[in-house]
Each structure stands twice: as structure tokens, then as C-alpha cells.
Amino acid sequence: MALAHLRFAAMPVVTVDATDAHALALRGWGRYTARLLGALPAAADGLQLNFVSRSTPGPEFVWEQVGLARAARRAGSAVLHAPNCFLPLRRSCPGVVTVHDLAFEAHPEDFGRLTALKFRAVAPRAARSAERIICVSRFTAEDLQRRYGIGPERVRVIPLAPALPRRGRRSAGSRPQDAGPYVLGVGDLRGKKDFACLVRAWRSLRREGLPHRLVLAGLDAGEGPRLRAAAGEEPLELTGYIEDADLDALLADADVLVHPSRYEGFGLVVVEAMARSTPVVAAEATVLPETGGRAALYFPPGDDRVLAERMRAALEDRDTREQLIAAGRERAGSLSWEATAAATVAVYRELV
């Protein structure tokens, strides 16, 4: 009888908050959640996955701390995974939380008052209460442990992979938007991204005859007017948020991606560009050397003179350019959502 009972015992239930995957405009957490959920079923043999989304009226905080915990309890969950940093503090089962970065600690000026208050009130408590913490990079894991005093025994590093849908090949004889070559930056226009450094470096190259436009693709979080003023009469384009197909085209057809950010938790756009054979120049800051490895050129954060030198090398030195493209393809190819999902399921299995 005991053997029969074990044979037909129900599989452990793992409840995952899928809310971010259904956002109208996928960014950051949402893109991570969507790609993870798509890859988890193939890796979760012997586990019953229970994907739930926000159904509680009122502020999202109510769903994150009450509705999500209730959904996990009703499903008889063995594990609850919050793929953002808002794991319910009170729950009926062990919790897994994914921490992407601690930008709200490092750059509080980039966050609204209420948003910063929520992050600072919940994220440290969620991390300290979690049975397992998934960090998307070694840098984020070390940042978390240092800031919150969390021991490494509960922390697992699971990197991301290129997540943006691809059209498969470059367009023949055409470029997105206006005609002509361009340098690309991708990310919200906010202080920590330091696109002002990129504008200065690009302007210095324009004075030396560089024909490229500068395209910055991302929501304007307040830096737009300052960047336009810094560009003067030079051809700067601020696209705002753009759909996946347009971002894919911009990345594939750019002559170089420059990522001057002073703080990132992973820097996914770096490997997105590499996957599309676009050379990358990035700030030698926080996680970016970890993410880009030897497949990018780096410059000291905020140093527009060195950035201009690196940009010129990536744009004009044939050998350097070919080496970056080849190394970038290899780096991007070493990452996959199948591997990310398998490592995530391994974390679940530690707790069931």
C-alpha cells in the first residue's frame, strides 16, 4: 500500500508569478519572465508548474503580498517563485526570489519617491526571507550579499540569455528609420545610463568627420531634453519606447552598440547586440565586463575621450571589428533560455 501511494503521489506544485510576462510593453523583468515561463515546462519533469497572474483589484502591492501568497496556498504549492524582487513576506511554502539588480539602492535618484519607498521596504525583507535567491549575475549576487548581509549558501547565480525575438537576418539594402549609418544606445533615458557621455564622445567624432547618426532607443525618464541640448545641431534621434520588431532591426543594423551605463544587473542589451553580429562598446562598470567578457571593448565610466577612441576602433579598424563580431556571436551563443530554465528548476528541486 505504501509503495502504491508513493507511485501515484501528486507531483510537487511550483507556483510562479507570471504577471510581468503579460505587460503590454515588455521590458526587463517582463522579458525575463516571459522567456523563463516559455522554457520551464521542458525542464520541469516531475514538477507541476502553476503560472498565476495578478487578479487582485487595487495596487500591485496587494497582489504581490496577498494575492500571490493566497494563490500559492490554494494550489498546495511546494515552492513559490517571484521572478521580481517582491516575494510575499508571509507565505505557506518555501520561496524563491529573483533579484535582477539593486539599482534602487545604488541610484535612488532614478526612482520616483513612492517606487523607491516600495523597493526599499520590500526587497531587502523579501531577499532575507527567501529560502533561495536567484541572481542574474555574480555582480548582483555580491552586491546583494554585501548590502543585505545575506550568506552565499542561499544564493544561486543564473545568467540570462538573448530574449528579444529575431527576424533571422539583416534587411537587404535598407536601414531602420532615416537613411545612413548610425551608432546605437538602448535603455531608458535616465541618469545611471549615462547617455550624456555617449553624446559627448559621438559629437567629438562628428567633428572629426564621422558620418554616423546617434540613435537612442528607450523611454524618456527625464534625460531627453538634456541630451538634445548636448547634441546641439548634430543628428540625434530619440525614439522613445519601440516595439520588439523595430528594436530587433535597430540592433541588427547598427554599426556599433554603445552601452555607457554606470550600473546594471546584467546588461541584456549587450548580448542582444552580440547575437546580431553588432560590435559592442561598454563601460567598464559593475556587471558589464562579466556579461560582455572578451567580446566587447571597454572604457572607464564617464570618460568620453576614451569612449570616442573605442568607438572609432569598433567602427573603423577592420580587424578589431571582425574580432568583436566573432567573439560576440560566441558569447551570445553560450547563453540559452533552456540552460536558464534548467538551472532554475534545479533551485526548485532543492526545496521540494
Score class of each variant (00 low, 15 high):
P176Y: 03
E330Y: 08
A116W: 09
A249T: 07
V183H: 03
R318D: 14
R200N: 13
E272G: 03
V66D: 00
A23I: 01
A23P: 00
S174P: 04
S174K: 15
R321W: 13
V306E: 14
T340Q: 03
S336D: 12
T286F: 11
L114K: 13
D101I: 04
A43C: 10
S53M: 11
P289T: 08
E243T: 12
L24M: 10
L268A: 14
L49P: 05
A25Y: 08
V157W: 00
L257T: 11
V271C: 06
I134T: 06
G265S: 09
R156F: 05
T291F: 06
E60A: 13
A127T: 11
G168L: 11
A308D: 05
A283K: 09
V287S: 15
S171E: 14
L307H: 04
G191T: 15
P162H: 07
A339R: 15
E60I: 07
D248H: 02
R146H: 14
R207W: 09
V16T: 09
T15I: 07
C135S: 12
L114C: 00
L227F: 04
E330R: 15
L189Q: 05
G265D: 10
A229C: 10
L89H: 00
V287L: 04
A282D: 02
L205I: 11
P301G: 03
S336I: 14
A217Y: 07
W202I: 15
A283Q: 01
A42I: 06
G224S: 11
G209E: 02
P279M: 06
E64M: 09
E153A: 15
A341D: 01
L324D: 13
L6M: 10
P108H: 06
R200C: 14
V16E: 04
A25V: 12
V16Q: 08
V62Y: 02
E237M: 15
R203K: 15
F266L: 10
M11Y: 01
T98L: 03
A126W: 05
A314H: 08
A161G: 06
R310N: 05
G151P: 10
C93V: 04
R120A: 10
L238N: 12
Y263G: 03
